[in-house]
C-alpha cells in the first residue's frame, strides 16, 4: 500500500521548479524562434528600413552616402514625374481585383459543386483540380504567356482570334486591352484552387438532410442551390473574398511573368510598379515610398481580415 511520504518531494529538479515558478516562461520560450525570425525579417525591416528608406535617395553603392531627401520620393509619385503612372496603376489594380476575384469565385464554386457529386475516382479529380494551385505562379504565367503569343504554337491566341481580331504583332500579351485579360486568364487558372478547396470543405459540411428535406418539399436544383447551398456558404464566401483580395493586391509574379507589366505600363499593377521601380530602375527610395503608401492602404484591410479570423478564438 501507499507509503505516507510519497508526496514529500524534496528532490524536485531545478528545471521543474523553474517551470513552476515561471510558468509563462515556457510559452515565451516556445515562441522565441518564431518571434525572432518574424521580428528580424518582417517587422524590423518593415518599420525601420521601410520608413527610413522612403525618405532617402537610395543607391546600392555602399561607398556612397544615401542622402536624406525628405518628402521628395513621395512628391515624385503624388505630384511629380511618377504621378501619371501612380494614378493609372491604382486604377488598373482596382480593375484587376474587380475582375479576378469574381472570376475566381465562380470557377471555384462550380468546381466545388461538381466535385462534390458522386463520381468514379473522385479523389483523383479532386486532387487534379489543384494542379493550378500547386504550380508556381511564374511557371503558370510563363506557360500562359507562350500560349498567348501570336504564333503557330499560341493556342489561346489562335482560339481568341477566331472570335475577336487580336493584333498579330505582339499577340495577346503586348496589345493593350488584351494584355489585361491575358494576365487575368493566368491568374484565375493558377489561383482559383484556394477558393475551390475552401468551398469544397464548405459544401461537404452542409448536412445532407437539408437537401433531402428540400427534395421532399419539391424544391428543384436551382432553389436548393439558392436556399441551402448559398446561405450555408455565405460566411465562407465573405472570408475567402477578403483573403483573396488582400493576397492578390500585392502579387507580382503572374503579371510579371505574362506581360512584364506591359505593353508600356498597361498591366503595371501597384506591386509590379514597386518591383520595377526598385529592382529594375534600382531607385529603392522611390520604390519604398510607393510601398509605404501602398501599406497605408492595405493595413486597414488586413486588420479587418485578422479581426474576423481571430474573433472565433478570443
Amino acid at each position: 500500500m501507499a507509503t505516507i511520504d510519497r508526496f514529500d518531494r524534496g528532490d524536485r529538479s531545478l528545471g521543474d521548479r523553474i517551470l513552476d515558478e515561471y510558468g509563462s516562461l515556457q510559452g515565451i520560450l516556445f515562441l522565441l524562434p518564431s518571434l525572432l525570425l518574424l521580428g528580424f525579417i518582417v517587422f524590423y525591416p518593415m518599420i525601420f528600413n521601410g520608413i527610413l528608406l522612403s525618405f532617402r535617395q537610395f543607391t546600392l553603392d555602399p561607398s556612397l552616402v544615401n542622402p536624406w531627401v525628405g518628402l521628395e520620393n513621395y512628391q515624385y509619385w503624388l505630384f511629380g514625374g511618377g504621378q501619371a503612372l501612380f494614378l493609372f496603376s491604382i486604377k488598373m489594380t482596382l480593375l484587376y481585383e474587380l475582375v479576378v476575384i469574381p472570376f475566381d469565385l465562380m470557377v471555384a464554386l462550380a468546381a466545388a459543386l461538381v466535385l462534390n457529386e458522386t463520381l468514379p475516382a473522385r479523389p483523383l479529380w479532386r486532387g487534379l483540380m489543384l494542379a493550378g494551385y500547386a504550380a508556381p505562379p511564374v511557371a503558370a504565367g510563363l506557360t500562359f504567356a507562350v500560349m498567348e503569343q501570336a504564333a503557330s504554337y499560341g493556342v489561346v491566341y489562335n482560339f481568341l482570334n477566331m472570335f475577336f481580331s487580336v493584333p498579330a504583332s505582339g499577340g495577346i500579351t503586348s496589345n493593350s486591352p488584351w494584355a489585361f485579360w491575358g494576365v487575368v486568364f493566368a491568374k484565375v487558372w493558377r489561383d482559383f484552387g484556394f477558393m475551390y478547396v475552401v468551398f469544397l470543405a464548405g459544401v461537404q459540411s452542409i448536412p445532407k438532410e437539408l437537401y433531402e428535406i428540400a427534395k421532399v418539399d419539391g424544391a428543384g436544383p436551382v432553389r436548393r442551390f439558392r436556399h441551402i447551398t448559398l446561405p450555408h456558404l455565405r460566411t465562407i464566401i465573405v472570408t475567402v473574398v477578403m483573403i483573396r483580395t488582400i493576397f492578390t493586391i500585392g502579387k507580382v509574379e503572374i503579371p510579371w511573368a505574362v506581360t512584364q507589366g506591359g505593353p508600356v505600363n498597361y498591366t503595371t499593377f501597384l506591386g509590379v510598379a514597386i518591383f520595377k521601380q526598385g529592382f529594375l530602375n534600382w531607385s529603392l527610395g522611390r520604390a519604398a515610398a510607393l510601398g509605404m503608401m501602398f501599406s497605408l492602404a492595405i493595413i486597414p484591410l488586413i486588420i479587418l481580415w485578422v479581426r474576423t479570423e481571430t474573433e472565433d478564438y478570443d
Binding site: G27, I41, G50, G250, K251, F275, G291, W305, V306, T310
Partner: peptide, 28 residues
C-alpha cells in the same frame, strides 16, 4: 500555454502573413 500579450502577439504574427512580400522586399 499562457503568457502575457498572447493574443496581441498572435494577431501580429498572422497579420504579417497578409502583408505583401513586395512591400517587404526592399527593406529586407
Amino acid at each position: 500555454l499562457e503568457f502575457p500579450l498572447k493574443n496581441s502577439l498572435f494577431v501580429l504574427a498572422v497579420a504579417g502573413f497578409a502583408f505583401p512580400i513586395v512591400l517587404l522586399a526592399i527593406p529586407i
